[in-house]
Design a protein around this nucleic acid. Structure first.
Length: 425
RNA sequence: GGAGAGGUAUCGAAGUGGUCAUAACGAGGCGGUCUUGAAAACCGUUUGGCGGCAACGCCACAUGGGUUCGAAUCCCAUCCUCUCCGCCA
């Protein structure tokens, strides 16, 4: 979400940005919202003037009444009443204008970072860097659910009966592995100076609107019937929401937090054959990191954040790469974003296991997250990144650590969380 | 879920229809005086948003409506918090 002042003063930059994102259909919105803004300010000004007059006259009435000059007071009253109709007309009109402006402002995309590659869709995302050698063993790697099944670690049939497609029962060592990964990731981030937080798993509608665009909300969020509550799609939602309406003293920044939560997503739309199993599901768990910082620091934190995820995966010997989101694939609220992808020796390609985003001041503007500075208050920048999100992450884990005899190596860093075991067999 | 109390600035709190709403009073924060230093005392200063080049104006007393020339104050609805009871991981 952009500042209306910015749009007013830089309409061409806003339009140029829309073109870069291949959203030509939104171009007319810019002039439309500028027109509405003008009308709004005019109506507001006239209404303010009328109110100023009313305030002044009302005080006079008070003074006249106090002196007991009732007739004079009655005259002044008439004068005030004369304007009241026009005033309520104006109030109605600018409330309407505001209502029209709101969705348009929500619809105009955030200005993307100059470093973002231009491209139409995810096919034009750009690989930035590989970490670790993507190996393909000379034995066949089974589908991940088959590996889990061999350890009696998953029951999708029962999950379908109980909750439907997109849910899972993890069991035994596989379930333990899942918890081990989450615990390890938590401690990994704590060691890097992040503060561990367990947030609410449901949030109010206004917070949802503050952290995501409407199309995302519609495609992702589950709503609790009869309540103003949504299940979070990621703890980013409740973690950024934590700062709603807050004015944070400069010296309390940056806020570097790592949070755990289950995540619930509708995952609207059709998905391919490679998205079966526990790849794309309605419920998963995630260790997340978020940062709230000064605007000038967000680029620094962006790099720092995705590197954390790369380091975490490398510590478990899983090859990864970073893939930069091109302009057309970038969500409207984001300035810059990259995916961390893990190597799949079965598919012989990388697949997404995490996503790192710099939202600039977009979320801060919607949620009114401000910083108290010496020269006044200004909007904060917000960032978020996945530390790790099993069970999807387990796909990469199992495929990369599978041995020819069907056992699974447990990397050293995870062993303390797995009762000291070196192997699942 | 039942009963009661309450929601005003950073916090506590006064105000119950008009020179008491930027908001008393108290505390805290910041700046200063005094002091070898500190404490104490004293003086000053401390909300956010919108419009405007500016002067300045407008808005906000949980939220949304209503009554009124004028609402923190009266009326209606909603939300939230606290205390007690019940239930419960």
């Amino acid at each position: 979400m952009l500042d209306i002042k910015f749009i007013r003063e830089n309409p061409d930059a806003v339009k140029e940005n829309i073109k870069k994102k291949f959203q030509e259909e939104k171009l007319p919105l810019v002039d439309e919202v500028i027109g509405l803004d003008k009308a709004l300010r005019e109506a507001q000004q006239e209404a303010d003037d009328l109110r100023a007059k009313r305030n002044k006259l009302s005080k006079e009435i008070g003074a006249l009444m106090a002196k007991g000059e009732k007739e004079k007071a009655e005259e002044v009253k008439k004068e005030v009443t004369a304007d009241s109709e026009r005033l309520s007309e104006l109030e109605k009109s600018y409330a309407e204008i505001r209502e029209k402006m709101q969705p348009i402002l929500y619809n105009i995309p955030q200005i993307i970072d100059p470093s973002v590659p231009i491209g139409k869709d995810d096919s034009e995302n750009v690989e930035i860097e590989r970490f670790g050698e993507p190996k393909v063993p000379d034995f066949e790697i089974p589908y991940h659910t088959d590996i889990m099944q061999k350890f009696n670690g998953i029951d999708l049939d029962a999950a379908r009966r109980v909750a439907g497609n997109g849910f899972y029962y993890l069991m035994g060592d596989i379930a333990r592995l899942h918890s081990a990964v989450i615990s390890y990731a938590r401690d990994f981030m704590i060691d890097r100076g992040f503060t561990y937080v367990i947030p609410p798993f449901m949030i109010h509608g206004n917070v949802v609107q503050g952290v995501m665009s409407f199309p995302e909300m519609d495609a992702m969020m589950y709503k609790i019937e009869g309540e103003d509550l949504y299940l979070i799609g990621t703890s980013e939602h409740s973690m950024i929401g934590r700062f709603i309406d807050q004015i944070i003293p400069e010296e309390q920044l940056p806020q570097t937090l790592t949070s755990y939560s289950p995540c619930f997503r509708k995952e609207k739309g059709a998905h391919g054959v490679e998205e079966r199993g526990v790849y794309r599901i309605h419920q998963f768990e995630k260790q997340e990191m978020i940062v709230v910082c000064k605007p000038e620091d967000s680029a620094y934190w962006y790099d720092k954040l995705w590197k954390n995820t790369v380091d975490l995966f490398r510590s478990m010997d899983i090859p990864v790469r970073t893939l930069e989101c091109c302009s057309g694939d970038l969500a409207d609220l984001k300035c810059k974003s990259c995916d961390v992808e893990a190597w799949s020796p079965r598919q012989k390609k990388y697949f997404e296991v995490g996503s790192c985003s710099n939202l600039g001041d977009a979320q801060a503007r919607r949620l009114k997250i401000r910083i108290k500075g010496e020269k006044g208050n200004y909007l904060a920048h917000t960032l978020n990144n996945t530390v790790v999100a099993p069970p999807r992450m387990l796909i990469a884990f199992l495929e990369n650590n599978l041995c020819e005899d069907g056992s699974v190596n447990i990397p050293e860093v995870l062993r303390p969380y797995m009762g000291g075991r070196e192997k699942l067999a």
